[in-house]
Amino acid sequence: MPLPTGETIGILTDNLRIRNSVLPISAKKAAGWAKSLDLPKGGETILYTGLMYQLIPYIAAMSKAQEKIEDSWLAGFIKIGRYLNKAINISAFMAVPSKNMRAAYNQILVDIVRLLRRAGVGFGYLYGEELYSGALVYDLGMDDVFEAHARKVYHLFKKYGVKKVITVDPHSTNMLKSVYPSFIKEYDLEVKSYLEVLAERNLEPENKLGMEVVIHDSCVYARAEGVLSEPRTLLAKAGIIVKEPADAGKFTFCCGGPAESLFPKKAAANAGKRVEQIKKAAKNGVTMCPVCFVNLQKAAGGEVFLKDISSYLAEAYCAKNSIV
C-alpha cells in the first residue's frame, strides 16, 4: 500500500498549524548553527534560513522511515498516526538524524554567513524565533493553512522591524519574494537570495579553485526566480570551470525532491535520472538548494561528488577558518 496521500498531507498540515513547521524541531536545534557567530538579533536586514538546511537531516531520517512504511502493511496505520500526531509530535520519534549530517548542513549556513561578511553585508538573525516559510504546504495546495502561516511569518518580521530579507535557499526565496505578496496585500519586504547579494558585490576571491564542476540549477531559482547568472558568475570568478549538464539553466531537470514527502520511491527514481546526466558532464557537482542536495547525493552513491555552492564559494572567497 502506498503512503495514504490525504493522511500524509493532513499530518504535514497539522504540524504547520499546531507547531509552525511541517517537521517540527526545537528552537535550539534550529538556531544552534549560529551560536558562536555573534549575529545581532533582528534588525532592518536579516538572514532568513527558513529552517530549510536545518530541517533536511530530519527530513532525510523521516524519509528513510517512510520508505520502510511505503508499500508495507504499516501504511494502513498512518490514519491513526494522524490522530496521535495532533497530541504528540510523532516525527520527533521517527526522524532522528545523524550528528554528522546535522553538522554538515549547519556548516553550509556558517559558510553563507562567512561569505556575506566577506562581502561587507551587515545583517541580523531571528534565532529560535525564526519560522519555516510553509513552502511544502503551499505546494500541496493547502492554501488556507498556508496563508495563516504566511501572515504569522510576516508579522514576526514586522515585530523586529525587518525591511530587507536575505534568503539562503530557492524555496524560501520563492515564498517570500513571489508567493507571500499574492496572499498578503500590505506585504512590503525586499527579498534577495544571498547569491544575488554576493553577485552584486563583485567580490574578488582569496583562492582560485581551478577545477571543473557541473552545475545543477534549482527548478525554483531557474524558472520561478530567474537566478541563473549569479551562481555561474560567482563560480567562474572563483576559478571554477562550470560544466553544463543536459537539461541545464532555464530547462534544468528536477531532482525529484518535491515528491519525497508523498512518494519517496518516485523521488529517488527521478534523482537517479538526473545523476546520470550530471555524471556525464564532470565528476564534481554543485547544487544550490538543500532539497536538490540531499536528493541527488542519495542517488549519486559516490559516482558524483556533490557540494552545496556555499562550500565552493567559501573555499574560494573566504580566508581559511575565517568567521568574520
Binding site: D139, C219, R223, F251, T252, C254, P258, N270
Partner: peptide, 11 residues
C-alpha cells in the same frame, strides 16, 4: 500529487 511543480512544462 506526483507532479513535482518543477515547471519544466510551463517553460
Amino acid at each position: 500529487y506526483s507532479c513535482l511543480l518543477c515547471r519544466m512544462c510551463e517553460a
